[in-house]
Design a protein around this nucleic acid. Structure first.
Lengths: 261, 261
DNA sequence: CGTGTTCTATTTGTCATACATAACTACATT
DNA sequence: AATGTAGTTATGTATGACAAATAGAACACG
């Protein structure tokens, strides 16, 4: 377990509060840590997902762990409940808490995904993300073409225009994300919408990896146009194919970059 | 808020503990409630997901709510943290806890899915589940055909044989579930595997809905055989198509039954 | 010697209470 | 009117005590 530098007690009066407001490079993930308990979740979560605490490994007793992290047992336990809800740990009386096998993790959870990408994701994880996109997004585009409302289409169109008008990579990334979120929403299937965390992470990783070379970040605009048109005309198969090409192209790009790193 | 009948204090000495061990009809979901806190999660979770507590609605203050549910504030809070992790609620100081808009729910969470199906799911939700299966499973079958290990194939084959040998609907259901779980595992993509909760819920719903008439529950065995063969021969497109037909057939069946109810 | 049983130590689970902190309200001050 | 300031209220955190479960030791017994 990490010693984890002192935080609470040695805090003299009330200087700059450790509001750990991470802005994140291209990705969304403002999640400012307001709670102590949230801090516990983040710290332990990262440790576990990054493999610094291996599955099967038992955590120290709550009392000790709380002391080391400089929080009360209350705050620690509340944090551990959250981690348990994400499938990362499991705790029983007498035995203590253990890191669960990766099979049981909620890999689709936004936090878990974010933790995995906190330190440069492995090439093989990038590959898995891409595979998910290839499955999710064309299907979503097809469903959206069938069931989208006019308002939903308008939102997607707005995102498209924001992409077209983007001057910086950040602006582009934000609009791009909004486009893909819009498509998922337009499926009107909330199960599908919940997969946004995956798409978000995949896109975010893409931006991080390709940021180095891509001054021509706008190259995928025509792909988006084709999807938009298909959605407008309510042509499911056309939308599926257009999205398919977009993602396939994205795949070849990102894997090229991932290999370099 | 529900008055929720007294549970803790009026318990005389230590009679039969309320170990609420639900066996569930065809579905898996043993989740015996061992913790008081788990009870809180289940009770509130069901209330929220079933819409008895509408989004935006504020929950009573922790002190009151804890009293009404006959648990301490500690236990209540730990339960609420879990619900917050599932995206169902959100709580801030002074304001109190509120039910979040459905957009933010983790619809893919196993518990959330189970709660939605606790009381007979609506036809439109069944439709959404089926759509997810149609997207996930063929893609998974294709990926599995490419990357499955021999051991994984053996596991799927074992499930197939268990299906063939099944005498009761329960045995069949269990083996069927194992088959589909095996396919997801054989993709060797943990993001894919996490989607098992969806497949599980969809299949479970199918069994519940079709249990009434289906004395011929074995009719889908040939479909499974075709998938198995394709996996054996490592033929992605064949596997995809076979799985596709299986799910499509399942769709027509289940929606026929759903309409009846 | 092996096997089943009881006991005990340890750890999580729960409770109760007190106080800290944030956010909203209303009032006061300039 | 704008701004600051104090009070109110619910969540957030800390602490200490006890209940309950259970792994593992100690033990009795075949």
């Amino acid at each position: 377990m990490p010693p984890s530098q002192p935080k609470r007690k040695p805090e003299p009066p009330s200087n700059v509060r450790p509001l750990t407001k991470r802005v994140a490079n291209g990705r969304v993930r403002p999640i400012a840590i307001r709670n102590l308990q949230g801090q516990v979740v983040q710290e332990l979560g990262r440790l576990i997902v990054n493999g610094e605490l291996e599955p099967g490994e038992g955590l120290p007793r709550e009392e000790l762990l709380a002391e080391r992290m400089n929080v009360s047992r209350t705050a620690l336990r509340e944090g551990m409940k959250v981690l348990a809800a994400k499938g990362l740990i499991e705790s029983r009386q007498k035995t203590g808490a253990r890191v669960r096998d990766t099979i049981h993790w909620n890999h689709l959870d936004a936090d878990v995904l974010a933790w995995r990408c906190a330190s440069m994701p492995t090439e093989d994880f990038v590959e898995k993300l891409v595979e998910m996109r290839e499955i999710i997004e064309p299907a979503a585009a097809a469903a959206a073409a069938r069931r989208r409302s006019d308002e939903q289409l308008a939102q997607i169109e707005a995102a498209y225009h924001a992409m077209a008008a983007a001057k910086t990579l950040d602006q582009w990334a934000e609009a791009d994300l909004a486009f893909h979120e819009g498509v998922l929403h337009a499926t009107n299937n909330e199960l599908m919408i919940s997969l946004f965390s995956v798409v978000e992470t995949a896109l975010g990783t893409y931006f991080v990896l390709s940021a180095q070379t891509a001054s021509d970040f706008r190259y995928s605009l025509p792909y988006h146009k084709k999807v938009l048109d298909a959605l407008h005309r309510r042509q499911p198969e056309v939308a599926r194919e257009a999205m398919n090409k977009m993602v396939a192209d994205s795949r070849s790009n990102i894997l090229r970059h991932a290999k370099k790193a």
